[in-house]
């Protein structure tokens, strides 16, 4: 393939990655923004989503679309419930102390990951996509007869990948509306701004925290359900999305949702594109170093506002 079509392909692959990353990172960012908790176990909620999706899909013998539909509903709910449980049993008792909660969520990470190893096993398992039509992509080329449209060999995507991008976009937009328009969104933003004042206004802060933690986990799980027909479920699959979400949340400005989405698109796209042309390891090295240096020199992130 030539450079142009190759780049288009890389961009599409990048867009799928970016879409899923935006959802995952949004969950992490939400939890950090409202609760000031750095959830190191976030990647495991993603993994949980994928694993539950596999269990649900393989329990259904009908058309893969039914399994997938069921997984879309059940997996995020499960992840949310587990997260609420973790919040009640652990984080709440730590009074959301930032350092202690990091250590605790590291523990939760291993508990979830190893439980998956014991129940789901060490193999990677696929989930069938609900639909998967190959869509060849056209390319414009300037030749003797002017522009000419043709379909280069190998340049194609699938209907499912386009669906992933669309589904993520829908969720992101609805989430933004939910945050700005709904009552719960308002309550969440109030809690984020000032916990004490929220308390004095009678907002049940602890319940809000539980729900936010659950919602964050559900977003990660939903992202995983979307990706699992493309990537397979595996008990160690949480590490990469965790790292990438961290990168996104920190570059996007801790706790800033808009920044998070912009950064997710940026990182997800460039990760996809860079990985096609260069070593993915090198891309990750640069990204992690970048995050570390952003935190060192610009603790408020590149996008977010400086906090007093």
């Amino acid at each position: 393939m030539e450079f142009g079509p190759h780049l288009l392909l890389a961009t599409l692959e990048g867009a799928v990655g970016a879409a899923v990353l935006a959802l995952t990172a949004l969950g992490l960012s939400l939890v950090f923004g409202v609760m000031r908790v750095v959830n190191v176990a976030h990647g495991e909620f993603y993994m949980l989503g994928a694993v539950v999706a596999w269990f649900v899909a393989s329990a259904m013998s009908a058309h893969p679309a039914f399994g997938f539909m069921a997984a879309v509903l059940i997996a995020p709910a499960m992840a949310g419930l587990v997260a609420i449980l973790a919040d009640r049993l652990v984080l709440k008792r730590l009074h959301y102390d930032p350092e202690a909660t990091i250590v605790a969520t590291i523990g939760i990470l291993y508990i979830m990951q190893q439980t998956a190893l014991m129940t789901f096993g060490p193999e990677a398992r696929p989930v069938a996509p609900p639909f998967n039509t190959r869509i060849p992509l056209p390319w414009l080329e300037y030749g003797e007869n002017g522009f000419n449209l043709f379909y280069p060999w190998g340049l194609s995507t699938t209907s499912y990948k386009l669906f992933v991008i669309a589904a993520a976009a829908v969720i992101l937009v609805s989430f933004a509306l939910f945050l700005s328009r709904s009552r719960f969104g308002l309550i969440m933003r109030a809690t984020q701004l000032d916990r004490e004042t929220a308390l004095t206004f009678g907002i049940p802060v602890e319940r809000v925290y539980s729900l936010v933690f659950g919602l964050g986990a559900a977003l990660a799980a939903f992202a995983a359900v979307l990706i699992v027909p493309i990537q397979q479920a595996h008990y160690l699959m949480g590490a990469d999305p965790l790292l990438l979400s961290f990168i996104v949340v920190i570059i996007g400005g801790l706790g800033s949702l808009r920044g998070t989405v912009v950064a997710a698109l940026l990182i997800g796209m460039s990760d996809g594109i860079i990985s096609v042309f260069f070593s993915p390891t090198l891309a990750k090295i640069l990204a992690t170093l970048l995050v570390a240096l952003v935190l060192v020199f610009r603790p408020q992130g590149l996008y977010g506002k400086k906090r007093a």
């Binding site: 652990v90 008792r93 730590l94 202690a100 250590v103 605790a104 590291i106 523990g107 939760i108 990470l109 291993y110 508990i111 979830m112 990951q113 190893q114 439980t115 190893l117 014991m118 060490p122």
Partner: peptide, 18 residues
């Protein structure tokens, strides 16, 4: 008796901080 030995580490971390 299990290959999920890191489960112990995870549990220990949570219990210790708690």
């Amino acid at each position: 008796f299990t290959n999920a030995y890191m489960l112990i580490a995870g549990l220990a971390l949570v219990l210790l901080v708690l």
